[in-house]
Structure formats: C-alpha cells, structure tokens
Amino acid sequence: MSFMDTLRTRWQEYRKPGYYDEFDYAWTMTIDLDRCTGCGACVTACQAENNIPLVGETELARGREMQWIRIERYWEGEYPNVKLNFIPMLCQHCDAAPCETVCPVSATYHNQDGLNAQVYNRCIGTRSCAVYCPYEVRYFNYYDHEWPSPLDQQLNPDVSVREKGVMEKCTFCIQRIRQAKDTAKDDGRRRVLDGEVQPACVQTCATEAMVFGDRNDPQSQVSQSMNDPRAYHVLEEVNTAPSVVYLKKVEANVST
C-alpha cells in the first residue's frame, strides 16, 4: 500500500463516528420499573461500594446531594386516585454522551468497554459535563469531604477518594469489572461470563429489578431483558444512546 492509501484508510477510520460498536464489551443495565419499589437499597449499596462521602444536613439543604444512583419519584393523579412511580436514575453511560464532548481536558471519555469513564485526576472542575448531562447524574465535590474516624476504615481501597473540585459519577462499579476481567484472564478465558460481574446496586436489589451484563452477547441475561417489548430509554428525544435501559412499568386495569 502506498503512503496515500494508508493515509486514506486511516482517515476513513478516524472519520467513522461512534465506533464503540467494536468495543470489547458493551456493559448495559436494564431496570424493570414494574419491580422497583424505591426502597433505596441500591443507593446505600452504591455509597458503601464507591466511597461516596457523607454530605451532612447543611450541605444537603444547599442542594449538594451526592448519590451516584438516586431514586426519582413522580406522582400521578390526585387523591384518592393517586399513584407514585419510582425511577432509579444513574449515569446512563450514553454512547453519544454530551458530557464527554464538553470536557476541555478529556477527563471524561468512553473507554474500551463502552463505559463513560471519569478520570478524577484529570478533572479540573469546570463542571460543564454536569450542565451538559440531561440526566443530572454527575456530582461535584464542592469541598473536601471528611469521614470522622473510624468511619474512614470502611473506605473501599479499590476506589479512589475524590478531592475537592472534582466531578464524580456512577462508574458501573468499574473496579468490579476490572476484577472480573482479571479473573477471566487468570482462568484462561477470553471473556467475562454473564453474571460474573454485578455493580453494587444490581447485586443488592431485593426485587431483582436490575440486570447487568454485556449486550454484545446475545445470550446474556441483559440482552434477553432488553428484548422485552417494554424496553425504552429515558429522554429518548435527546438522542444520547444510553446504556441503561428501562422496562416500562405495567399498569394494571383496576376497575373501581
């Protein structure tokens, strides 16, 4: 191949949008809204796994909550025909993530697993990613958080403790994914098995509303779950191609 040909091939390669299709894994989560009871176990599990700081009442009053996964609640109707719908909201790991393009220092990007990764050490704290995120799932460290001793002994050594001025968000428990990949490699396997890795929220969910896995594998539980006709994306109209798929809540016909 001549130099020009090489150049042309490379050019075409680099001009191909969204080549995350070719990633090693495409980690995906489905959340069945028909099962979610809004209990909040996922929230606490996430806090425990990912060293999410305690914010305190005064800071919460100033609107500085810090929960990588949160339960949103939406009321419908008025008393007595009133309904409450829960929806867990976490980083959607969008394939066309608005947050990634806006970071001037590439502190957030798409990694080879199709995850939306956040590099804490690289972050300079412009907070523009949080503005660009339509799901509002990016959280900022407004100051150095403290773990009064001995609460600090609980901190997970696999996850870094973020300093002030750094943006953070759900990672799909990337430390667990890393570990599973290492185990697979040690066992001489090419790929992580389905169900071998689960983020803390999925693991703890008592109604089994959440399923996590690789959608590249058509046999995986999550692919099956995505096959459900109830599958949809939240805020589909903003076209972010999320990796979190929700299954529609089922509304029973209650004739009263």
Binding site: D21, N85, R215, M226, Y232, V245, K248, E251
Partner: peptide, 27 residues
Amino acid sequence: IVQKVDAEEHTTPIAGLSSIPVKVVQS
C-alpha cells in the same frame, strides 16, 4: 419519564422484538 404499558398488552414477561436492537458480536 416513567413510561407505562397496559397490563393487558403485557402478557408474557419476555416476548417479541425489542425497540432497542441488540447487536450480535462474535467473540
């Protein structure tokens, strides 16, 4: 944001084609 489906439409837990295509990748 929280979308719903009628219970009558939703008969079996897993059926049919998804609105979100699943890509098949050889590993």
